[in-house]
């Protein structure tokens, strides 16, 4: 797919990953990674929610639509949810959404769900690192630019049709 507005190539381009972390397990684990000074890729931007069950599929779609190259969701391990089963709800939604996004042409590696407990600072590091690498390999998703392009195309078509109609009426 041609994309004019998108930043081309990998020169200077860095993947942007939006991460939704649950307060009790994964956010705490990310804090632990910090306290343990586990340096990792600076590409993930964390949004804290109380539970991965709070993850509205629209958050994920919105993030992609606004220019995220990847979305990461972190929740408690199965059986460990602070709210008993919110992570199972997240799992169902994510599975469904992954299927949908595949149909939309968004590569599955761009959207990842990971169970990370409060003690797994190391896993925060490896998850962010591996995800960044995978997304980097896929290149920019650039949805906002594609939207702009499509809008332009639509405008062009609209203009052409208007011109045609004008010609007919004239």
């Amino acid at each position: 797919m041609a994309s004019t507005g998108m930043k081309q190539g990998t020169n200077g381009w860095e993947p942007r990953i939006v991460a939704f972390f649950c307060n009790w397990c994964t956010y705490t684990a990310a804090d632990l990674a910090g306290v343990s000074r586990l340096r990792h890729a600076p590409n993930a931007r964390v949004i804290r929610v109380m539970c991965s069950g709070r993850l509205d599929p629209q958050f994920v779609l919105d993030a992609f639509a606004r220019g995220a190259d990847g979305v990461l969701v972190g929740g408690c391990h199965p059986g460990d949810c602070h709210y008993m089963e919110g992570n199972y709800k997240a799992l169902r939604r994510v599975r469904l959404l992954q299927r949908m996004m595949k149909d939309m042409g968004i590569h599955e590696d761009r959207f990842r769900l990971e169970w990370i407990s409060a003690s797994e600072g190391e896993k925060v590091k490896t998850t962010i690192n591996t995800m960044t690498e995978r997304v980097r390999a896929l290149g920019p998703l650039g949805l906002p630019e594609r939207f702009a392009e499509w809008d332009e195309e639509m405008d062009g078509l609209a203009h052409a049709i208007a011109a045609q109609e004008e010609a007919v009426h004239a």
């Binding site: 942007r16 939006v18 931007r45 949004i47 929610v49 509205d56 629209q58 958050f59 779609l61 919105d62 993030a63 639509a65 606004r66 220019g67 995220a68 949805l143 906002p144 939207f147």
Partner: peptide, 27 residues
């Protein structure tokens, strides 16, 4: 919702002028 959406928007908005108002799948 609007708090989280605005957070997403803020995270991804490299330049102040790009994409203001509702996005494609705005709640």
């Amino acid at each position: 919702d609007e708090q989280i959406f605005s957070e997403i928007e803020g995270l991804l908005q490299e330049k102040e002028s790009v994409l203001t108002g509702g996005g494609a799948w705005r709640a």
